Structure formats: C-alpha cells, structure tokens
Simulated scan of single mutants.
Amino acid sequence: MSDRSPYSARLPADESRDHLMIQAAKLYYDLDRTQAQVADELGLTRWQVGRLLAEAKAEGVVRVEIVPRARRATGLEAALQARWNLREALVVPMGGVTDPDMLNEGIAQAAARWLATLTPKPALMGVSWGRTMAALARALPQGWAPGLEVVLLNGAAALTVTDPRSSAVAEAVAQAAGGSATLLPVPAILGQPSTCRALEADPVIARALARGAAAPLLAFSMGGVSHRSALCAQGYLSPAEIDALRAHGAVGDILGHFVDAAGQPVDAALDARTLGLPLHRLPHAEHRLALVAGAEKHAIARAALQAGYVSVLVTDDATAHFLLETPNE
C-alpha cells in the first residue's frame, strides 16, 4: 500500500470526501476495479474504500437496481418481506389482468422457478390441490427434484369432477420431479365428524397425514369465499353453504379450512368434518410456499399472513399492493 495518500490515517469530512466517494464508486462500479485496486489508485486502505462505497449507497450517490430475467416486482417483494416477516416474496406484474386462469398461470410459473432452484433439493414435500396447484404442477420442469416424495395434504376424492387435473396435483408434481406420490384418497369434507375421526384413525390414512405433517416443504393455494371455489365445484359445498360461510365471517379457505380475517376457523362443525393437515401444523414447516392471486382472494391472503401460515408468498402485483396498504389488526 502506497504511503503517498493524505487520507491514509483518516478520511476527510469536507467536499474532498464527496469527491473521493464518487471516484471510488466510478472505479468500482463503472470500471470494474476490485476494492484493492481502487484503494491502490486512490491511495486509501481497503477499509476506507469499503466505507466510501457503503456511504455512496446509503446517501443515494450509487443506486443499485435489481433487474431479474423473469418479470418480477422486486420493490414490492422487499416491502412484503419486511411488512409480513417473510423469508421470500415473489410478485408477478400482471398489468391489470383480472382473469383468474391467467393470474394462476402467472404466479404458478414464478412458484415453479422458485421450487426448481431451491437448494438443497427437498426429499419430502406436502401439497394441496386445486386449479392454482394444478397450474404449478404443469409449470414445473422435468426432473427438478429426483427422488422427491410428494404427499397430498388434504382429501381430494371429488364428489363431482369438472377438471380432473385439479385433484391430481400430488401425482403431477411427483411425476415432474422424478419421484413418488403419497395420496390421501378420501373426501376433503365428510358428512359426519365421527366419520372424519374414524378415517383419521385408519392406519393408511394416518400414515399419509403423518408424512404431510413431517414435510419441511409445504406448497398450497388458497380459495376465496365464492361460488367459483374448488370445494364448490367438486361438490363438497353448495352455493348456499358458501353464502352462509361468508355471512359468518369467512374470508376464504386454506387446505379446506374456512377461516376468518385472523386465520381462525369460522365454523367448528364444518372444521370437524374437514380431513387434512390442521392449520396449526403449518407454522412448523420450514418452508410454507403459498400461491394466491386475484381480488376475490385478497382477504384470505391477508388472513394467512396475519396467522403466520406463510413463509414464502407468490402473488400478483395488485394483491401485493393490497397486502401492503391494509393496516394490521
């Protein structure tokens, strides 16, 4: 290190400091010099260069812009992570699109990219079912997690079938990964609580439920309280029952459990007939990947965040704005 620098002991505190800051920033960011090279050219120590560069970013002299290859609203992502204490947020700009299928495809592709780059690769994963999750399964690249065991988290035996792909999510995710699927071949909602308890006690069903509860990675979507609900389309609930749930304060469902704005079940009797992973188990998983988009799901997205069910959120920009603008309860 050269001894010629008048700043070797202490950086100046006047305009010459700003001049040095700009010089260091140009050399480092525009001319691709290393910090050691910048230090040598300016007659500073590496510690001083590092301090000048840090100040340059803090004071707005240098602005670092993240431009991802895939369309992402990184500013909204950072704000969501800070506001809701998320490990990760992925926000897809949809340009005002409101069509549910297009929204699902957009966020499903973003979620698939996140899963495909996850390291280390998971060995066990729990998934829910539905239209959004079916879109995720279609978007996953082949061989993204060889040997992965995929477990269905809630019952998916449909009473009526409008789209068979929406209930075959575990199989599709496992096939794309190059792994295997553990299914839960029971209805999502039973007619009697006693029937639900009996099925949960069955060794085959109990084993599948236990595998789901043990999965360190859970991926699930959320449903709004509307007649478009997958549970309504699959014949579990009638439009009149959906309307009654809304009247009782339901804002949507997570894994078949209809919850209020705080993320708590609104109908104890219905919840006792719902077969699948209990909501209180969600926070125990290391990664809780939630996919949600569209105005009818704004309230359920907020409820899930409020209750701490989500660690990784994938959503559209309109939903992100809603989640940032509404106050905490």
Rank of each mutant, 00 (worst) to 15 (best):
V150Y: 09
N104S: 12
V259Q: 09
P203C: 10
E296W: 11
W47M: 07
A269H: 15
S194P: 00
M125Y: 13
L237A: 05
V173L: 02
R83T: 01
A233E: 14
V173I: 08
N154Y: 01
P283M: 05
A58M: 10
L27I: 00
S226W: 06
L118E: 05
R207S: 14
A79F: 09
L148E: 02
E149A: 08
A112W: 09
L118K: 13
P193H: 01
S167Q: 14
P203W: 12
V312S: 06
R228A: 14
D271I: 01
S238E: 11
P239S: 06
L270P: 10
A54S: 15
L115K: 07
P120E: 11
L103F: 00
G252I: 04
P187W: 07
L184S: 12
E171W: 14
G263S: 04
I107A: 02
D99S: 06
P93H: 13
A247W: 00
R33Q: 09
G308C: 11
L237D: 06
A157N: 10
Y7I: 00
W84K: 14
L184Y: 10
V186F: 10
T326D: 05
E41V: 11
L231S: 12
E171G: 02
H298W: 08
L245A: 10
V49I: 02
L11A: 08
S238T: 15
L136H: 05
K26Q: 13
L44N: 01
D18A: 15
L270A: 05
A214Y: 11
D18T: 14
L115N: 04
A230H: 05
V91C: 04
E286W: 07
H280R: 13
G126C: 07
L20H: 06
P265W: 01
L209G: 03
V38R: 10
A135V: 06
T162C: 00
P68H: 12
A181I: 07
K57Q: 14
A181H: 10
F322H: 14
A39M: 04
T117P: 00
I189T: 04
V173F: 02
V67H: 06
R10E: 15
L209K: 03
L140I: 03
A268M: 12
L115I: 07
P239W: 07
A293W: 02
K57L: 10
A145L: 04
I22R: 14
L148V: 03
Q192N: 04
A108S: 11
A293D: 05
A36H: 08
T162F: 05
A293P: 04
V312C: 12
L245E: 06
L118R: 15
A13V: 12
A116S: 15
L289E: 03
A170P: 00
Q48F: 01
Q192R: 13
L140F: 09
V92G: 09
G143P: 02
Q37G: 03
R197S: 13
L291P: 00
L279C: 11
S8K: 05
R138D: 13
R138W: 01
A123S: 15
A301R: 12
R197D: 13
A269D: 15
V310H: 06
L184R: 11
R228N: 14
